[in-house]
Computed example of a mutant assay.
Amino acid sequence: MQIKTHQKIDNSLSGEVLSIEEGKSATVRLKTDNRMVADEKGLIHGGFIFSAADYCAMVTVNHPNVVLGSADVRFLKPLKLGQTAIFKSEVLSTEGRKTLLKVEGFFEDTQEKFFEGNFKCYTLDKHVLE
């Protein structure tokens, strides 16, 4: 498993890759910690959830110049401090440079789905900042 994209990502904040079937699917695990907490009750901020889901989509495409074009996501249940999330992606279609993916997030302990989204990714000829 060779990760070709987002190589400087902080895996403690965006998740660690468990598996990649390049161009088809990927699995990412996000272990929650105090840096992600939004309030005194231990609610994990949605930005960290989105980051892990986006990272899962990016490593599925697994190209150095992949970027996110858009996302339509739903937060179905809250994630709280101490819980671990598993994100699973699936490529729905590829047309030229555009890849459409589904990403779902599950509580690791119960496998109950708490997040779902559709991501539109583009593979560019050169880095987006060049």
Score class of each variant (00 low, 15 high):
residue 72 D to Q: 13
residue 52 A to D: 04
residue 72 D to L: 13
residue 38 A to Q: 14
residue 85 A to G: 05
residue 99 T to M: 00
residue 56 C to H: 01
residue 88 K to E: 00
residue 99 T to Y: 01
residue 86 I to W: 04
residue 97 R to K: 15
residue 100 L to N: 14
residue 41 K to S: 12
residue 62 N to I: 03
residue 82 G to N: 07
residue 36 M to G: 09
residue 62 N to L: 08
residue 68 L to I: 11
residue 54 D to A: 11
residue 83 Q to T: 04
residue 68 L to C: 10
residue 65 N to S: 13
residue 88 K to L: 00
residue 38 A to S: 15
residue 105 G to P: 00
residue 41 K to R: 15
residue 64 P to I: 08
residue 102 K to S: 12
residue 87 F to Y: 09
residue 86 I to G: 09
residue 66 V to R: 08
residue 39 D to F: 10
residue 70 S to T: 08
residue 37 V to Q: 11
residue 53 A to R: 01
residue 91 V to T: 09
residue 90 E to V: 08
residue 36 M to I: 06
residue 64 P to Y: 10
residue 61 V to D: 01
residue 70 S to R: 03
residue 81 L to Q: 15
residue 42 G to P: 04
residue 38 A to P: 06
residue 56 C to R: 01
residue 102 K to D: 07
residue 96 G to R: 01
residue 76 L to F: 11
residue 55 Y to V: 02
residue 59 V to I: 12
residue 98 K to I: 06
residue 34 N to A: 15
residue 60 T to P: 06
residue 38 A to H: 12
residue 47 G to M: 13
residue 39 D to P: 07
residue 93 S to R: 02
residue 85 A to D: 08
residue 83 Q to K: 04
residue 62 N to W: 06
residue 94 T to L: 01
residue 89 S to C: 13
residue 74 R to M: 09
residue 65 N to T: 13
residue 58 M to A: 12
residue 34 N to I: 15
residue 109 D to W: 03
residue 66 V to N: 06
residue 42 G to H: 09
residue 68 L to T: 13
residue 71 A to P: 06
residue 49 I to Q: 05
residue 79 L to C: 04
residue 62 N to M: 06
residue 105 G to F: 00
residue 66 V to I: 15
residue 99 T to G: 01
residue 35 R to Y: 12
residue 91 V to P: 07
residue 39 D to I: 05
residue 56 C to G: 05
residue 43 L to E: 08
residue 98 K to S: 04
residue 108 E to D: 11
residue 61 V to F: 02
residue 64 P to F: 06
residue 100 L to M: 12
residue 69 G to E: 11
residue 40 E to D: 14
residue 34 N to Q: 14
residue 83 Q to R: 02
residue 90 E to K: 14
residue 70 S to K: 05
residue 40 E to K: 13
residue 62 N to V: 03
residue 64 P to G: 11
residue 47 G to I: 14
residue 40 E to W: 06
residue 108 E to L: 00
residue 60 T to L: 05
residue 71 A to W: 05
residue 76 L to E: 14
residue 83 Q to C: 01
residue 46 G to L: 10
residue 50 F to E: 07
residue 44 I to C: 01
residue 91 V to A: 04
residue 52 A to Q: 04
residue 76 L to T: 11
residue 74 R to I: 06
residue 109 D to I: 05
residue 62 N to A: 08
residue 34 N to F: 15
